[in-house]
Design a protein around this nucleic acid. Sequence first.
DNA 1: CGTCCACAGGAATGACGGGCGG
DNA 2: CCGCCCGTCATTCCTGTGGACG
Length: 400
Amino acid sequence: MTDPLDSLFSRVLSAKIFANREMMRPDYIPNDLPHREDQILKLAEILAPSLKGSRPSNIFIYGVPGTGKTAVTKYVLKKIEDEGRKIGINLGVAYINCKHDDTNYRVLADLCESVGERIPFTGLSTSEVFRRFVNLVDSSERMIFAVLDEVDALVKKTGDKALYDLTRINQRLSRTRISIVGITNDLKFMEYLDPRVRSSLGEEELVFPPYDASELEDILSRRAAVAFNRNTLEGSVIKLCSALAAKEHGDARRALDLLRISGEIAERNGDTKVTEEHVRMAQREIEKDRVVEVIRTMPLHSKILILSLYLIGKGGSKGGSTGELYDLYCTVAKSMGLEPLTQRRISDLINELDMLGIANAKVVSKGRYGRTKVVSLSISAKNLKESLQDDPRLESLVKK
DNA sequence: CGTCCACAGGAATGACGGGCGG
DNA sequence: CCGCCCGTCATTCCTGTGGACG
């Protein structure tokens, strides 16, 4: 009768925090995007010629994460697609997330898929896929928008060849027109590009400024008004979420996540109102999930490296140089009966950890005592242990 | 002001497994 | 089933360099 699960279920069932949880999810595209009216209008203006059958300019969209770039693009393209259908124009939209598909090959494969052709996800040469795509697309008359989200990831990894090919693709097509919409978080991204690509890709540019705290607050309260039940949010909760997210470069996605998870925590606890305390718990939870998830999926040697990093930090405090770290890593690896990786490889792994925000690496020159990288852990020991503990190969080491 | 440490990080190359066409 | 090409991980070899010391 007093089964803890029963009481959990009944608490969850009777919880009345959310009216519509779906609307708080990060991939939900709302019908109104407050404070982005200018961008919507501008984007629509640029893309609208497609409705008259001519090719719109390629366009480049900048803005830090969570400024509504993806949402606005999807929203506008959907409207255009609808309109095109109404007046009988064949419009297609290929949305590609280059962070997820970060090789030339996968981008092309995705493009093919978006026009209805399955491509084996490996096995063919890249140029063969390109050739197939051209033939396929040109088989009927249409207009295609290729949306390359987070395109900086693609270019940093594989160079701008794919982009170059894409910008030239119209010359090889006789019936179909392709227009490229590039989206990036990296404001300096254009500098990496070949000038030819730069000029054809950046025919038009659109900048998404970050939201400020009051705009975030407005977005959150509008969304909360439909997603949450009445009187379930304590007065200052939305303000706090917006303030926290505004600190994170005005990231609206972050703000929405924070609010949603706060609601979920409140619901789990059987509380009837979301309080500031819930928000703070949510913030810790987000951080923890991120770290634990990232570390768990890492290869073994990276985990050993993290462990070594932790051990170094425990002794000194402010981290260690590459040399010290590498020595320690070798010791740990050998004690596990593993052949250590080369210093060169470890150097790459350190950079990877730095990028993921798990470690801080800074190049420091110590004069004639050499130049090195000082590396330190930037996550809490508690989260780290939790992440490493479920690896059976490391379990016993972590305990110490 | 030149030297020289202790690495950073680029280039080339190889091992390996997946998945295709034939 | 084979040979081929791919992406990924790793090694080897290498050149480059900021700045305290002398």
